[in-house]
C-alpha cells in the first residue's frame, strides 16, 4: 500500500512538451509509472516518445484515456488555471510541480479544488513517489526503495537528502510526498499524516518542516491527538535570520509564529522524535521501527 499514488495511477502530464515536462515524463516512464496522456494546447494528435498521445486539453485526455491523476509542469502564470482544468476534467489527484505561482491565484484555486473533492499536492513541490509503484513529479527514483516509512516534507532536495540516507541504511518508504514550500498549498502535513496513519503498510513517518507559519505546530497537535504511529521530525532554518524570505515563499519568520525553536518545542511536546541533523533520521526511525 501507499498514499495518493500507486499501481493504479493513470497519469496525464500537463505541459508534456516543455523542457521540464518532457524530461521528467521520460524519467517517470522509465520508473514504470503508467503515463497515459499528455496535454499541450495546439499539439493535440501528436505523440510523445511515440507512445503517449497528446491532447489539446485535459477533458479530452481524461475522456480518451481514463487518466485519474495529473502532474503539472506549465509556467507559473498559467499554473493556477491548469490545476483548475485538471480538477474540473475529473482528475482526483493533481500534483503541481511549478514554482512561482502567485499566492493570490492560489486563493481562488484552493476553494475550487476543495469543493470538487479533489486532492491537490503543491504547487512548488517535488511531487510524490510510491517506490516500486509510481512516480509523479521529480523525486529521483533511484534514491528510494520500497518499505514501511512514510516521508512528508515542505522541501525538495532536503527530502532527497533524508530519503537517500534512509535508503542507504536499508530503510524503505511507502510513499514520499513533497507538499511544497508555498504559503498556500493543496495538501498540508496533517493531510499526509492522516493518510499515513490509515495506510496499513506505513509503520513510521519522517516529517521535514521549515521555518515560517504554523503548519508544523498544527501537525504536532495532530500527531499527539490522532496518531498511533511514531513520527520523527526535523525543522530547517534553525539559524535563519527573522524577516528574510529563505527561497521558499513560506520560509520566513514573522512575528512570534514560525521560528524553528517553537516548532521543535511543539514536536517534543507531541512526542515526535526530533532529528537535529538530517542524518539523525536514520537512528531515530530505526529505533521507532523496532
Amino acid at each position: 500500500m501507499s498514499i495518493f499514488i500507486n499501481k493504479d495511477t493513470k497519469l496525464v502530464v500537463q505541459g508534456i512538451t516543455g523542457r521540464d515536462g518532457s524530461f521528467h515524463t521520460k524519467q517517470a516512464m522509465e520508473y514504470g509509472t503508467n503515463v497515459v496522456a499528455g496535454v499541450t494546447p495546439g499539439k493535440g494528435g501528436q505523440m510523445f516518445e511515440g507512445t503517449v498521445p497528446i491532447f489539446n486539453n485535459v477533458y479530452d485526455a481524461v475522456a480518451k484515456t481514463g487518466a485519474n491523476t495529473s502532474v503539472i509542469y506549465v509556467p507559473p502564470m498559467g499554473a493556477a488555471d491548469a490545476i483548475m482544468e485538471a480538477v474540473d476534467a475529473g482528475c482526483a489527484t493533481v500534483v503541481c510541480i511549478t514554482e512561482g505561482v502567485p499566492v493570490l491565484d492560489m486563493t481562488r484555486v484552493y476553494p475550487f479544488v476543495k469543493e470538487k473533492g479533489a486532492r491537490l499536492i503543491g504547487p512548488n513541490c517535488p511531487g510524490v513517489i510510491s517506490p516500486g509503484q509510481a512516480k509523479v513529479g521529480i523525486i529521483p527514483g533511484r534514491i528510494c526503495i520500497p518499505g514501511n516509512v512514510g516521508v512528508v516534507s515542505r522541501s525538495g532536495t532536503l527530502t532527497y537528502e533524508v530519503v537517500y540516507q534512509l535508503t542507504r541504511a536499508g530503510i524503505g518508504q511507502t510513499t514520499c510526498v513533497g507538499i511544497g514550500g508555498d504559503p498556500i498549498n493543496g495538501t498540508n502535513f496533517i493531510d499526509c499524516l492522516d493518510a499515513f496513519e490509515k495506510d496499513p503498510n506505513t509503520h513510521a513517518v519522517a516529517m521535514m518542516g521549515e521555518i515560517g507559519g504554523t503548519d508544523e505546530q498544527e501537525a504536532a497537535d495532530f500527531v499527539k491527538n490522532k496518531m498511533t504511529k511514531p513520527v520523527v521530525g526535523f525543522i530547517a532554518g534553525q539559524t535563519a535570520p527573522p524577516g528574510r524570505r529563505m527561497g521558499h515563499a513560506g520560509a520566513i519568520i514573522s512575528g512570534s509564529a514560525g521560528t524553528a525553536a517553537e516548532k521543535i518545542e511543539a514536536f517534543k511536546a507531541a512526542g515526535i522524535g526530533v532529528a537535529v541533523r538530517p542524518m539523525d533520521f536514520v537512528e531515530l526511525i530505526k529505533a521507532k521501527l523496532k
Binding site: S155, T157, L158, T159, E210, A236, G237, A240, A251, R277
Partner: peptide, 28 residues
Amino acid sequence: GAGLAMATMDLVKYYGGEPANFLDIGGS
C-alpha cells in the same frame, strides 16, 4: 534547493561554524 540550503546553514552552525550566506542555485 531552499530547504537543503537552510539545513546546510544549520549544520554549519551545529558543527561550530557560521554561515556567510544563504544561497540557492535553484533547480535546473
